[in-house]
């Protein structure tokens, strides 16, 4: 399956959030890699680029925004979805400035996240309909 090869990177300092999001995306046949910090994620880039990045804003030391800037500065372009507890206009603008695909507020709706990832990975036309629960099979 095409989806098997799609790798989603999730960066959040909260283990329980990582695990839950990973489980959710797993139900949509996404392969996920979870990182507790931005640095951990950057280190992983040498082994290959994920198809999509889901990143939390509030993290100690290296925040989500720091990570986005870092990627932009190094010319690394990964479709990115920001998840955050704070809806701050300034942060949202800066995220959009660096090309963020979606800006989702915690606690987030699974459908919205999946739709955003589908859009980011270009999977929506292929088998988007099949992914909607209940419509499958």
């Amino acid at each position: 399956m095409l989806s098997q090869s799609v790798r989603i990177a999730i960066v959040d300092d909260d283990a329980s959030v990582l695990k839950a999001l990973s489980r959710l995306l797993g139900t949509c046949s996404y392969r996920t890699a979870t990182y507790r910090s931005a640095r951990e994620f950057l280190d992983s880039l040498q082994h290959g680029m994920p198809a999509c990045l889901v990143v939390d804003m509030q993290m100690p030391e290296f925040t989500g925004l720091d990570l986005l800037h870092h990627l932009t500065r190094h010319g690394i372009r990964i479709p990115t979805i920001v998840i955050t507890g704070h809806d701050e206009a300034a942060v949202r603008e800066r995220c959009e400035a660096v090309g963020t695909r979606a800006y989702l507020l915690k606690p987030l709706q699974g459908e919205a996240l999946i739709a955003a990832i589908d859009a980011a990975t270009g999977r929506e036309q292929a088998d988007g309909a099949a992914l909607v629960p209940g419509d499958r099979d």
Binding site: V17, K19, R23, I83, K106, P107, L108, G110
Partner: peptide
């Protein structure tokens, strides 16, 4: 809450 919601939907 994020974890709860995501786990429930999963």
């Amino acid at each position: 809450l994020t974890a709860i919601l995501a786990n429930a939907q999963a």
